[in-house]
């Protein structure tokens, strides 16, 4: 599904990614862990086609990211730190706009269903600027999945969410997984990573230093592995 070969990204004489090799199978949910500045978000931005890599190849569904970026963008759902929502627009207006851009059929019904799914149907027509951080994040999740993406790229999606919103987000990720969606999630939240992910990747100084599967949903096991790899890095 996602195949990354010798991926490097250089900015201002500094290597942010140093020859990343990674293969993620269809339907896998992968957590990307690592200290600040390790290159996790940059990796996600390259996959989301926001940044062009300096060297290396990325294949998604067998398509080259450089040559088929429009086709690849159709299957990607990207949720960064920012909400990517228009403040003065309501959730419905935001979702309908992005749905139209992605060419979603019956977009209004889909938007209404998604707002309902993230528990904000009561605020369907309220401007997003009046929402709390958690509410905005829920709509941002709905925006990312409006076109039912095959690949979901999430950058610290649990940050600033209350327990209710975390549970809604996890349910969304798991239901997408059931439909065969591949998820790559950058996170610092080991508990969530252990709970919903099949596989953990640890990135340090722009390289993958560990890559393992978690069968037991044991947070302690993830922490142990992480500490072993990033010891001495603040």
């Amino acid at each position: 599904m996602i195949e990354i070969k010798k991926l490097s990204k250089q900015a201002d004489n500094k290597f942010i990614l140093r020859g990343i090799d990674l293969r993620v199978n269809k339907g896998e949910t992968v957590a990307v862990l690592g200290p600040n500045g390790a290159g996790k978000s940059t990796l996600l931005k390259v996959l989301a086609t926001l940044i062009k890599p300096t060297a290396g190849h990325v294949l998604m569904n067998g398509l080259d990211l450089r040559k088929n970026h429009i086709e690849i963008k159709k299957v990607i759902g990207y949720l960064p730190h920012s909400s990517l929502l228009y403040d003065h627009y309501s959730p419905l207006e935001n979702l309908v706009f992005f749905g139209n851009i992605y060419g979603v059929n019956n977009v209004e019904q889909r938007a209404v269903n998604l707002v309902k799914e993230v528990g904000l149907s009561f605020f369907l027509n309220e401007p997003v600027k009046n929402f709390s951080r958690g509410m905005i994040q829920r709509i941002a999740i709905a925006r990312a999945i409006i076109h039912e993406p095959e690949v979901l790229l999430l950058d610290e999606p649990h940050t600033g969410l209350d327990q209710g919103a975390i549970s809604i987000l996890n349910n969304v990720i798991l239901s997408m997984k059931e439909k065969g969606t591949t998820t790559l999630m950058v996170t610092h939240d080991f508990k969530q990573a252990a709970e919903i992910c099949d596989r953990i990747i640890i990135v340090k100084n722009g390289k993958i230093v560990d890559d393992f599967r978690i069968e037991t949903r044991n947070q302690g096991f993830v922490s142990e592995k992480y500490e072993l790899q990033v010891e001495g890095v603040s």
Binding site: L50, I70, P80, S82, S83, L84, Y86, F98, I101, R143
Partner: peptide, 15 residues
């Protein structure tokens, strides 16, 4: 630039 909505447009399938 507010809420990085430009990124939302750039990741969408449009030239």
């Amino acid at each position: 630039q507010r809420n990085d909505t430009m990124q939302g447009l750039l990741v969408a399938p449009m030239e």
